[in-house]
């Protein structure tokens, strides 16, 4: 019983924000991300439907997968039919597409952008290199599996994945959202310490707040 209480207290505690200077600490929030439970089922179903029908993806080409997003936006594959549109600001977007391998320098920005997105947020990881490193498995600068750093909803395999498979990935994501299973935001909040530990293990100069609100 005691142990659980300590955990509870720890969860209520604010983040340390060790990476920031004293002056910067006043500028950033130190609250922990909280699990937001879904509302009543009927409403939640309706909201999930809206979420699935309007997927705004963050315009952040993190890797070479970004090149297949352009054909996807244009007339041949036209993802806007499915309500998918690019959005330049992380505050407003709900889908994060990890375009392939993430280098050490990019994973820092990925984490930062991901945390700035407002939940519910979904992640699609493209390419073999996000799953197990792909052909860069032995590279010293690319991470091997992305799901240790941010929660991933859908993997689309291939190097490069074709636009068709990307569309299939989007449709699978929609199914997941409609079924209420795409809950990466709450997963991230629940396992926040584990994710943070993994992130800090590779990002050596952590000079941003622990959670980028």
């Amino acid at each position: 019983m005691e142990k659980k209480d300590i955990n509870e207290v720890e969860k209520q505690m604010n983040l340390a924000n060790d990476g920031l200077s004293d002056k910067e600490k006043t500028l950033f929030s130190d609250a922990r991300p909280q699990v937001v439970p879904p509302v009543h089922k009927i409403f939640e179903n309706f909201r999930n439907w809206a979420r699935a029908q309007s997927l705004w993806m963050l315009a952040f080409g993190t890797g070479c997968g970004a090149i297949e997003l352009r054909p996807l936006m244009t007339s041949r594959y036209d993802m806007s039919r499915y309500g998918i549109a690019p959005r330049p600001s992380p505050r407003q977007s709900s889908v994060f597409i990890i375009g392939g391998y993430a280098s050490l320098k990019t994973i820092k920005r990925i984490v930062r952008s991901y945390e700035q997105m407002q939940g519910p947020k979904f992640v699609i990881a493209l390419g073999s290199c996000t799953i197990n490193g792909g052909m860069y498995y032995d590279s010293y600068y690319t991470i091997n599996r992305i799901d240790h750093y941010i929660p991933v909803d859908i993997y689309v395999t291939g190097c490069m994945p074709r636009p068709e498979s990307l569309l299939a990935g989007f449709n699978k994501l929609k199914e997941r959202i409609r079924a209420g299973r795409a809950d990466g935001m709450n997963k991230y909040a629940e396992n926040f310490d584990w994710y943070k530990k993994n992130q800090k293990r590779i990002i050596k100069d952590w000079n941003m707040p622990d959670y980028n609100w």
Binding site: G133, I143, R145, I202
Partner: peptide
């Protein structure tokens, strides 16, 4: 500098490769 060793030590490997 052994890049494979560094990668194995630093990043999480997915079993099954």
């Amino acid at each position: 500098f052994d890049t494979l060793k560094y990668s194995e030590e630093t990043y999480y490997q997915r079993p099954g490769r």
